[in-house]
Write a protein that binds this DNA or RNA. Structure first.
Ligand SMILES: [Zn+2]
Ligand SMILES: [Zn+2]
Ligand SMILES: [Zn+2]
Ligand SMILES: [Zn+2]
Lengths: 150, 150
DNA sequence: ATATCATGGTTATATTATAACCTTAGAGGG
DNA sequence: CCCTCTAAGGTTATAATATAACCATGATAT
């Protein structure tokens, strides 16, 4: 039976991807991913922990951190360093370079799929630096918060 | 009398900038900036605290965090979110967009002065997002660590 | 002088993250 | 089916990072 919920569909799709990869998607992992997909904003590890704990689904912080590490590794979630929080990836589960537009006012995050900036890759190349992982986050104010400030 | 030390000269220069701005550069602020300039790598707030404490120059963590906030605000230091650490700015004390190449192996950080990537500013513009602050950090391996791995 | 404000001291605590060790539960071979 | 191996997660404790709240001091301005 279909879920009729976009977030759940995203979770299902991610589930399938992991299965195809031969990686195990356990109940706990699925629950965390689900939480992230349903959230309107990035969630802190302890937000997740509290939610899962209330639902009798998580035991202690290390479990949550392990799952988050796993999801990030698998490309299903991202860590937003400016917020110390985590968000479900809303692009494909493939490795990709993403940037995040984070609204200070409403907390929403917009994940944009753009290539690594040429200026950055050029600089790295010219100094012999091998890039393994890029973080790009822009803090600011989204359109709706600009137009209808609180 | 001249200092004959590049890091101290940088600190002096920053000092002058602040004075010109009519902002107070207190002893504590100068000491923190000095530490940052002399460090080979970014320093955590508690690294700084421990150092200053040993020298009888700092009382407790909040003092250090306040100074760090001040220095970042003034453009004399940067917070490296990937490391939860702070580094003296090695470009001008003007507001600038910087990117950081961070070597996982030796911990050195290279601050590069490049313009905000057009792809990013374009994306923001097209969605009506007003960017106030950009974080760009690349983790990887620097040339010398690639050539002479430990 | 005295009011005002920026700075920093002090104490306590919040928030984020990991170490270390043990138990359970699946997968896969025999 | 049983055994072995390993990935996953439970559990406890603690590390590392950061801030709240309140007070004391010292610069600045009128
Ligand atoms: Zn993504
Ligand atoms: Zn907003
Ligand atoms: Zn800088
Ligand atoms: Zn290196």
């Amino acid at each position: 039976m279909p879920t009729h919920c976009k977030a759940c569909e995203n979770t299902d799709s991610a589930t399938k991807t992991l299965t195809d990869r031969g990686v195990r998607l356990t109940v706990l992992r699925r629950d965390v991913l689900q939480e992230l997909h349903h959230a309107k904003q990035p969630l802190g590890a302890y937000d997740l922990f509290d939610n899962l704990k209330s639902a009798g689904k998580a035991s202690a912080p290390p479990a949550v951190y392990r799952v988050l590490d796993f999801l990030v590794e698998q490309g299903l979630a991202h860590k937003l360093r400016s917020l110390s929080a985590y968000a479900a990836c809303c692009l494909g589960p493939h490795a990709h370079q993403a940037i995040f537009l984070i609204c200070r006012s409403c907390g929403t995050v917009n994940e944009c799929d753009i290539a690594a900036p040429k200026s950055l890759t050029d600089t790295a190349k010219s100094t012999g630096f091998r890039i393994e992982d890029i973080t790009i986050e822009a803090m600011g104010t989204c359109r709706s918060c600009t137009e209808a400030p609180n």
